[in-house]
């Protein structure tokens, strides 16, 4: 064993090592990002099995193209989100003519600690909310999910989405308006 080849993988060097073909570094990046990418996909499409499938494809694609990755100072996750975003668009295109799968058949139950009645009510609310979110444009959905699922700041979202912070603020405002309109359209009361 060559001790000189053993390098500690950290947040700082993981991307560079992975780009250089270090599989442990890619595993490190996978561990750090898989949950957030899965969540993003899951909330965008509403199906756990499809979310798993697309998450796999995101990481396979990233792994296959890691040698072409150029570090531009934005988080590595931005690249993964972009791949996920494109694959979700393909998924929607492919599913356009298929019958829409009811979201309630696939939604996990994130409110497991609640009483059953309250849980059911919350899940119904979540289904309607997700229905409304999925009716707004893809970039608005992305912004809402990054903000509320990932709890990211406007500056961080701007880096991921490749826009200015001002553009994100304005997009966020428009996203809320569009979301409220969609909620009203499907008979959901936000207050």
């Amino acid at each position: 064993m060559h001790e000189s080849e053993v390098v500690d993988i950290t947040d700082q060097n993981a991307v560079a090592l992975a780009c250089g073909g270090n599989p442990e570094a890619f595993s490190f990046l996978y561990e750090k990002n898989v949950t957030r990418i899965y969540n993003y996909i899951y909330y965008r499409i509403g199906s756990a099995s499809d979310a798993e499938d697309i998450t796999s494809r995101v990481f396979y694609r990233a792994f296959g193209h890691i040698n072409t990755y150029v570090d531009k100072g934005v988080p590595f996750s931005a690249w993964l989100y972009r791949i996920a975003h494109n694959l979700i668009a393909n998924w929607h295109r492919d599913n356009l003519r298929r019958k829409e799968v009811p979201l309630e058949d696939h939604l996990d139950l994130p409110h497991k600690a609640d009483q059953p009645e309250r849980m059911l009510e919350k899940n119904q609310e979540l289904i309607l909310l997700m229905k409304a979110i999925r009716r707004i444009s893809a970039d608005r959905q992305q912004l809402i999910l990054l903000k509320y699922l990932e709890d990211l700041s406007n500056a961080e979202i701007a880096q991921i989405m490749g826009r200015s912070e001002g553009a994100i603020k304005s997009l966020y405002h428009r996203a809320l308006i569009a979301l409220r309109e969609e909620m009203e359209r499907i008979g959901y009361k936000s207050d």
Binding site: F26, S27, Y30, E31, V34, T35, R36, Y38, N39, Y42, Y43, A48, A51, E52, T55, S56, F59, Y60, F63, D108, P110, H111, K122, E125, L126, L129, I144, L145, K147, Y148, L149, S190
Partner: peptide, 23 residues
């Protein structure tokens, strides 16, 4: 409402483990 309703979900650990191994 968004803040209270949109909570991260945990992917299936079996799926995560399998994918990691396959990768």
């Amino acid at each position: 409402k968004l803040s209270s309703m949109l909570k991260p979900v945990m992917p299936d650990p079996v799926f995560m483990g399998k994918l990691k191994t396959r990768l």
